[in-house]
Amino acid sequence: MNRKKFIATLSILGIGSVAGYYGFQFAKTKGTPDLNFLDNNKDLLADLCETIIPKTNTPGAKEAMAHEFVIYSLKHSKEEALVNNFINGLKDVQSYSLSKYDKPFTQLAKNEQIQVVAHFQEIGKNFSGGLGKVRNKILGKSFFSILKEKTSVGYCTSMLGAKQGLAYEYVPTRFIGCTDLLPGQKSWATK
């Protein structure tokens, strides 16, 4: 739905029903985040991070300990809605995995884990366009976008991620403005 359509829909449906839906969702973003849940579910988080950036011929997010950064970052966030969205998302992943596959996420096969994350990716983009922006503003970023963003930062700035997933030069000693890009050459880890 684009922005114009959204505004049109709003005026047809009346603001009340949308506000009512958001009111319900909004309540879930409030309250002191259950930060212990992060520490108590490290394996779950590590597997989720690994699904975002899996091991290939280079280490994945789990080996690079990206989940430790995700936890640190969330524990030091003052954005209550963001942290609650994330923790609620973790809980939702657990219950979705159990209801769909009858197994916890950490025991699913790789392709099943991908299916679960894809499901939450879809929920994340539930409302595209203008309504998506409104949603983000009121409810905060979706679980999937927080997971993806923090996993990416955690991985790309980790030792394994930077040195093996990407190309890291500690002390370059020279600058060459124009080089030939070699086949398979990785992009630089730092700017």
Partner: peptide, 28 residues
């Protein structure tokens, strides 16, 4: 001037998994 690298890819791309990792590690 520069080539897109992971901080840019991370924002612009909406995939995940092996394909996403490949994009992160390839100059854009």
């Amino acid at each position: 001037g520069e080539r897109s690298e992971w901080p840019d890819v991370m924002k612009d791309d909406d995939s995940f998994g092996e394909g996403y990792k490949q994009k992160l590690s390839t100059p854009g």
